[in-house]
Design a protein around this nucleic acid. Structure first.
Length: 472
DNA sequence: CTATGGCACGGATT
DNA sequence: AATCCGTGCCATAG
């Protein structure tokens, strides 16, 4: 209801030409990667456009930090593209405040080019806040030395010597990397990758110590499917050994960079987007119990777009035969800049509302996701629902936790129930059947069918009750 | 007989 | 109009 804090040109319903509308829509659909291509294309064939590399905020004149205007929220002159748009999402009571980060530290992140969608930058994005500057270089070295499977093929001593740092420093960085998604990247062997993943599951109680031991001590037996000697080695029955081996091959992946294992994980469609760097970053400000959320809409290029001032001068005394073409270019450039502004404006509004409504989810995790439909959000923002759909599709957001998720995740209707199920299973003392889980859920107020529980369970990659390992 | 996965249908969402 | 999602029914495995 009350949304008086928006100082933007409130009337987004101002008359638009059809060209304007169409272009805004198509821009809205693009994620950063596509946007980059688009912009580069425009830049190279439209002389009226110019990239301003060391941008000052057009409205307040301050130097932009990390493509971000530290203090101004005023509408900008329409000749210049608005710099990186950002919003600080208030927590209900507090009115919108803007946050200025302190200089250099952040500046050096600029060089992580957001357009790359390879594994290296994906991982780097997850840990960038935990790394000091020198450590980032090491991290980059490690990540670029990964082979196709996501394993580190060169010895870390080499890296340490190359940078003249102690081995422990490299090891420290590598440890951070190991625990990133996909779990186990940067391991020096398939065995190590497995161990990392296994320990994670173990800590969550989803892994027996026998299975852990199987990997640690009996890796070669395991990989040769030599169950008999494996069972002797760790002191379990043959049957159990086979179970363990199956469980491992179903739930772990010795090659972190390869696509997901098995067909359990339902998010195969997500995979292409998973390694992309995010289009939006949500950061948690302040460590109090009332943290603020800052929403940054990333901008794929360094610098801002504007009309080339020289071109503008030249246009008035253009030779008559060129005049039309030049004017055309000018119009196009002008339109593009305007549409880009519109795009980001929409995106900011959208993300701000999202951050506000899904605050709990962003801060506390999957279990707190509120069911939310694009339609209802569209109504609140007073835009067409297809606008939301476009904006949301094919974009991803990085949460304060470092996780990168597709924005469509915010509209997942069942995620909170799925995590509820995960918890129930984690806490179970002996494997619960789907029917039992259904009952427990209905006591907690979730009325869903048994069949649905089964679906959710398999979505989460959890094995059926009779195949689950017993807890101690 | 119980626990699950497959298929397909209808309603909601996009 | 196309797609996604929850569910019921049925076949199958243990």
């Amino acid at each position: 209801m009350a949304q008086a804090h928006l100082t933007y040109h409130k009337a987004s319903h101002r008359p638009m030409t059809t060209a304007h509308l169409a272009q805004t829509m198509s821009l809205l659909e693009m994620n950063n990667y596509e946007l980059l291509e688009k912009i580069q294309g425009e830049l190279s064939n439209n002389p009226a456009l110019e990239l301003n590399e060391d941008p000052k905020c057009p409205a307040c004149g301050k130097r932009l930090i990390n493509r971000l205007c530290p203090s101004c929220s005023k509408p900008t002159s329409s000749d210049v593209f608005e710099p990186l748009v950002f919003v600080s999402a208030r927590n209900d009571s507090a009115s919108s405040t803007y946050y200025q980060k302190s200089g250099e530290d952040i500046d050096s992140f600029v060089d992580i080019s957001p357009q790359t969608e390879d594994l290296a930058s994906y991982v780097l994005a997850q840990i960038r806040t935990e790394l000091k500057f020198e450590e980032r270089i090491i991290a980059a070295h490690i990540l670029t030395s990964l082979d196709d499977d996501g394993l580190l093929s060169i010895p870390i001593v080499e890296i340490a010597m190359f940078h003249h740092v102690p081995l422990s420093a490299v090891e420290h960085v590598r440890t951070l990397i190991l625990n990133c998604e996909p779990l186990g990247v940067g391991a020096s062997s398939a065995k190590e990758a497995l161990l990392i993943q296994a320990r994670h599951l173990f800590n969550q109680g989803k892994f027996s110590d026998n299975a852990l031991k199987a990997i640690e001590d009996g890796y070669s037996e395991l990989s040769h499917k030599n169950f008999r000697s494996l069972s002797k080695l760790i002191g379990v029955t043959l049957k159990e050994a086979e179970n363990i081996a199956n469980y491992i091959s179903d739930n772990l992946n010795p090659f972190p960079a390869r696509a997901h294992w098995g067909e359990h994980h339902a998010d195969t469609s997500n995979l292409p987007t998973r390694y992309q760097s995010p289009d939006v970053v949500i950061t948690r400000m302040g460590d109090s119990d009332k943290p603020q959320l800052m929403v940054e809409v990333l901008w794929p290029i360094r610098g801002t777009l504007r009309i080339n001032p020289d071109f503008r001068k030249a246009i008035s005394d253009a030779p008559p035969e060129k005049s039309d073409a030049w004017n055309d270019d000018y119009q196009k450039a002008h339109l593009l800049i305007k549409c880009l502004g519109q795009r980001n404006h929409t995106l900011v509004q959208l993300m701000q509302k999202l951050a506000e409504q899904q605050r709990e989810y962003i801060l506390k995790g999957d279990a707190h996701l509120q069911p939310l439909t694009r339609a209802s959000l569209a109504e609140e923002l007073d835009v067409h629902e297809s606008t939301i759909s476009r904006a949301v599709s094919s974009k991803s957001v990085q949460l304060p936790s470092g996780k990168i998720v597709p924005i469509s995740q915010f509209f997942d209707r069942s995620l909170h129930i799925r995590t509820e199920i995960k918890q129930i299973i984690e806490q179970e003392s002996k494997p619960l059947s789907d029917t039992k889980i259904t009952k427990i859920l209905s006591k907690k107020g979730y009325n869903i069918a048994r069949r649905t529980v089964a679906k959710y369970r398999s979505m989460e990659g959890i094995l059926p009750a009779h195949l689950r390992l017993k807890k101690k």
